[in-house]
């Protein structure tokens, strides 16, 4: 087998691409550009951490089933963990979104990073919504009977039935979290591959010219 034949293999080509785009020092960096020095940068990792707590508390709720938290103090507490981590998750994610907007973080070939971030935000809203309608209490009864009109009006209700508890629970604990986590992973990989967006470039030439003009006066 010739080396060119090996080089042409799908697997080899994928490996080459991955190692070129994501060398270990980018995946697990030990330095950041000097301009990355603001508290505004902590909201991405805060969102990720909250997602971790959301998933962990969700795992515990899944262990015991959808009705457990109504009848057990411990279950109710785990439900509280799930609720508050979701509130922190959205809290941090929205600030993360604001800050990335004001940094125009899509610059320098990072537009897909922005796009995956926005899609993750939208999928997260859908995931949270399916959780609200899977609570098996008054809240879920009311929210589902209200939301059905909005969703039915678009035709989506024909295959996404918010009154079907089993269907909503499956979406909430399998399909949507899977998509959200995959998108988040993709988003983080993109951030690692491209690095944190550099500041807007000052135009020192223009400013300098102005200053020189003023000084000359």
């Amino acid at each position: 087998m010739s080396s060119t034949e090996i080089d042409r293999q799908w697997t080899t080509r994928l490996r080459h691409r991955l190692t070129r785009r994501l060398p270990p020092e980018k995946v697990l960096p030990d330095t950041q550009p000097a301009y990355v020095a603001s508290w505004i940068y902590v909201f991405g990792v805060t969102t990720l951490s909250a997602l971790g707590v959301v998933i962990l508390s969700g795992f515990i709720l899944a262990l015991k089933g959808p009705q457990w938290w109504h009848v057990s103090g411990v279950g109710h507490f785990v439900n509280s963990l799930h609720l508050w981590s979701v509130e922190i998750f959205f809290f941090a994610m929205v600030i993360h979104l604001w800050s990335k907007y004001f940094m125009a973080a899509w610059r320098g070939g990072r537009s897909l990073t922005w796009v995956t971030g926005v899609v993750t935000f939208l999928v997260s809203i859908a995931t949270a919504f399916t959780g609200y309608v899977s609570q098996t209490n008054f809240d879920s009864q009311w929210i589902s009977t209200q939301a059905k009109d909005g969703i039915n009006s678009t035709g989506v209700g024909s295959f996404f039935n918010v009154l079907n508890f089993g269907q909503m629970l499956m979406w909430h604990i399998v399909l949507l979290p899977l998509v959200a986590v995959l998108l988040t992973a993709l988003h983080v990989v993109m951030v690692r591959a491209k690095g944190v967006v550099p500041p807007f470039e000052d135009k020192p030439s223009e400013e300098k010219l102005l200053r020189e003009k003023e000084e000359a006066r």
């Binding site: 020095a37 603001s38 508290w39 505004i40 902590v42 909201f43 809290f91 929205v94 600030i95 604001w98 800050s99």
Partner: peptide
């Protein structure tokens, strides 16, 4: 609180 945290994060020295 979100707006406050955002503004504080902008101004608080790192």
């Amino acid at each position: 609180l979100m707006v406050v945290v955002f503004v504080v994060a902008l101004f608080l020295p790192f």
